[in-house]
């Protein structure tokens, strides 16, 4: 997978998370995975279709998602309800929009699906024929993994 696809997502995630969630964030070591990967519990997925196709997953555990949603709403949310889901969806939306703007500037044209949220235990994601690159991000609320699996068409 070309790094040109990944960097805009990492940069956008950093910018947006810093602005709306937590100024003290750190990036972990990125790694590649080619087989099925477990999903942490709450995952927002955005699909890409065009010159570049695939998906980006914003993956975190339920406590981290709740912490992020609480911070973004300025109040303590105690359960992962519709408002919390809408908040994580909006976060994924903002990060993806910024990344895609950068990719469009680099000359790639493609469309996006609106983010969808999956929640549950023991979930896995598999992508046939494309490796996933995972960028772990450490926030004070826990870990978020940006899991990007895209290829050129």
């Amino acid at each position: 997978m070309r790094v040109e696809y990944i960097n805009p997502f990492v940069e956008a995630a950093f910018n947006i998370l810093k602005e709306v969630v937590d100024s003290d964030i750190k990036r972990g070591e990125l790694y590649l995975k080619s087989t099925s990967q477990p999903v942490l519990g709450v995952a927002a997925i955005v699909g890409l279709a065009g010159d570049v196709e695939g998906r980006v997953l914003f993956d975190m555990n339920a406590d981290t998602a709740l912490g992020i949603a609480s911070k973004m709403n300025g109040e303590d949310l105690t359960e992962f309800d519709d408002l919390a889901k809408a908040t994580i969806t909006e976060l994924a939306n903002m990060i993806t929009a910024q990344a895609v703007t950068k990719l469009h500037e680099l000359g790639f044209t493609f469309d996006l699906t609106p983010p969808a949220i999956f929640t549950g235990e023991n979930m896995e994601v598999s992508d046939s024929g494309v490796e996933a690159l995972i960028v772990p991000i450490e926030l004070s609320y826990g870990k978020m993994e940006i899991n990007v699996a895209v290829r050129e068409r």
Binding site: M72, N73, G74, L83, A86, T87, T89, N93
Partner: peptide
């Protein structure tokens, strides 16, 4: 369509 954005603007 986002409950979050509606709440944010409203607040």
């Amino acid at each position: 369509d986002s409950m979050f954005v509606t709440k944010q603007i409203s607040q």
